[in-house]
Design a protein around this nucleic acid. Structure first.
Lengths: 204, 204
DNA sequence: AGATATATGTACTTATCGGTAAATAACCCT
DNA sequence: AGGGTTATTTACCGATAAGTACATATATCT
């Protein structure tokens, strides 16, 4: 009776788990980038055939975007949780050390898929490149807003340019993604995190 | 008589200028990355046909590597010249402000082709990815050596960890490449450069 | 049991990928 | 003018790209 698509268990059940298949797709996109990943790479890693992929996820682009969503909502992600810390300094600290830990973790590809998934790319990938830029810019904006709050909280000096501070932090984080791709280990990234905090304005 | 390939003007002369063709190729690789660039993209931009490209430059991979060589030896490149400055601080300053100027320059693609040319890529691009990683790591090593010199010159405090300092600076520079791709303008990158120098140890 | 609905595997499509064979054109040297 | 050498053009190669048609398999609902 309902006009919306029913979600009852009718028809042949899916033979694979969508979440784990999406995890596999994320892993491939992360390692090879959008242009560098073929559908064969994806179906092989996900353990399904192309028609199943298309039926479940739409197409390559939509699969990529869903993988990015998964990436950002994973338990091991560090960006949004860091915003919850009580002071601006702690936010920065948590973000930088979280990145140092996560980006060089050998349990998954190095770096950050939002940075390296479609940086320089073909015209076919232009829309996903834009989507990733938006994610990065929105993250920077969220951090700026958090720092604005910190200013009214009094844990940042009144004269602080929160936009520059947020951009500086994001620049280092994005640079750490490149460093991780260079082969830098967590300890080396931690040292960079430590130096970065030297430039951070302490509680006024 | 000579055993080496003669360079006399024998045979039909090349109808295009190799240097300007290589500039065009660089521009395309810079904008689209190695995987994202097709031979059609290249031949169209360079104004030549595929056999001419292969005869003059070998293949796609060799053309890419030659384009990178050109990139690093261009007059507007800022990394190596900065190493010539007289103090460690001036080296850092020159490098950071040079990057701010160059990476957001709208006369060419944004960012840095050594960073974004083959970050996450297909297996076909694995060798060029390695080549770019080597370039980045070698740049970092050169900067460390320069800072070691600065330490003996007495313009860095004796306790300075030059490896960390070099890595910190490279991290920011590589992050600035991402920021430029995000659409950041030179002035915004200059602000990041300024903040970065806050964490820099001043002359002891 | 039979109808309906969804998922699956196989095989296919069209387009493009990187790369090349072969014929022709344009130069220098004798 | 003719031979030697190299560049250019056109047309092609096999492989792979993303995406799909279709027949079959497996579930629920009546």
């Amino acid at each position: 009776m309902s006009a919306v698509t029913s979600t009852v268990n009718v028809g042949r059940p899916r033979a694979f788990d969508m979440d784990t298949a999406l995890e596999k797709a994320l892993e491939v996109f992360w390692r090879k980038g959008y242009d560098g990943t073929s559908l064969s790479d994806l179906t092989e890693a996900m353990g399904i055939n192309k028609p199943s992929l298309y039926a479940a996820f739409g197409n390559k682009e939509q699969l990529f975007l869903k993988a990015i969503e998964l990436y950002e909502s994973r338990p091991c992600s560090f960006f949004l949780p860091a915003l919850e810390k009580t002071t601006a300094y702690q936010v920065a600290e948590h973000m930088l050390y979280g990145a140092a830990m996560n980006m060089a973790d050998s349990n998954h590809p190095q770096g950050c898929v939002v940075v390296q998934g479609a940086l320089s790319c073909s015209e076919a990938a232009a829309s996903v490149k834009e989507a990733l830029i938006n994610r990065r810019v929105e993250g920077e904006q969220k951090l700026k807003v958090r720092f604005d709050q910190a200013k009214t909280d009094g844990d940042l000096p009144p004269g602080t340019d929160t936009g520059v501070l947020a951009r500086y932090l994001l620049t280092v984080l994005q640079g750490m993604a490149i460093q991780a791709n260079n082969g830098a280990c967590s300890e080396q990234l931690r040292q960079v995190a430590h130096m970065t905090l030297q430039a951070f304005p302490r509680a006024g």
